[in-house]
Write a protein that binds this DNA or RNA. Sequence first.
DNA 1: CGCTATACATAACT
DNA 2: AGTTATGTATAGCG
Lengths: 211, 211
Amino acid sequence: MEHGEASSTTCLPSTEQNPLQNLTFPIKQQRETKLQSSKTTKGRQKIEIKEIKEKNRRQVTFSKRRTGLFKKAAELSVLCGAQIGIITFSRFQRIYTFGNVDTLIEKYLRKAPVMLRSHLDGEALTGEEDVDGRMWWERAVESVREEEMEEYMKGLHGLRENLWKKICEMGGDPTVQMNAQAFPNPMAPTDWKITDENLTVRNDQGHAGKW
Amino acid sequence: MEHGEASSTTCLPSTEQNPLQNLTFPIKQQRETKLQSSKTTKGRQKIEIKEIKEKNRRQVTFSKRRTGLFKKAAELSVLCGAQIGIITFSRFQRIYTFGNVDTLIEKYLRKAPVMLRSHLDGEALTGEEDVDGRMWWERAVESVREEEMEEYMKGLHGLRENLWKKICEMGGDPTVQMNAQAFPNPMAPTDWKITDENLTVRNDQGHAGKW
DNA sequence: CGCTATACATAACT
DNA sequence: AGTTATGTATAGCG
């Protein structure tokens, strides 16, 4: 660290955050900005949360923040033993995912019926027939019989499985990127970055229905 | 890192002052030890990324970090015009979602076939018949006819629609929480917190296939 | 839930 | 992709 001249000693005693007004102390900033001595960069600048216009800057931000988001998700997953899945579509409709999206989607879709059923508990679901021409899913939700739901879920799962298998065989598509994570439990507490290792689809299922 | 020590190394140049930072006056911190004591807290402590044992601390962390994660997602969504959906299952299988999960799930599920089809382009899909007893989704993926896919997606969409409608009518289920966001475009750059307003399911569709 | 000090994420630049 | 300085997220506590 050769700060050479300019006493830019960066004494940052207390990084306080002013409650409301950032009292700009009338410090004489005069010059001193000379001699390229002080800071090499301006550091992180505050930005407004609104669509970034400059295509290039936006691209970089998307990449960086997406990585940060996934990292946060991974940490949360581990710290709290939660299962997390993220689906992201860039404006170019390129898809990036985190976690066992398929598994979570299934759980997600399966969740509603369960809740619904518990709510309607005791309301004897008299197997309603397909009296009109509507499809099974067009009927009142509570009339959807379990078997149909099962079939539906089975189809969903099976389809996805086949699709992935096929996609993997093909070596993947450039419009798809995925980061597996959301480990229900552990992992070396050390190597906790989103490494290439982790950027693979995992077949975790985790403690489902354990609690 | 007591401020007491800092004072000894305090830079406080005689003539020049800190270039671009409005420090909080170091004056009153001089040596003033006792009285209102120094630090009131130890500030954020470094923690290992591994499952938190203490149930209470874990609960708090889950809540805080989940909020942070969703906020990050919202920012990324706005800044880069991306569509983001997050599904989270706590260890108690309580579900928390962010964004238009349903819409994104559909897009996600629909994506693969599209990619697949483009890859198999020119490979004349000779409508394979259901020669064996397997279900349509059990056959090779490339043999899944578009009509079936359509039907499937229609069912998925319709089902979810009905489920949500029903759930909303019931006033929601305690095991489900959702935060809508992932606005494809704008929103007042100001009110950019996850307000109650935003914690509602939105029917955004956004610029799908625009790019 | 609010606060504070500090760990961590990241905007601007190279 | 790598660096730096600074904006933010948050661990621990009341």
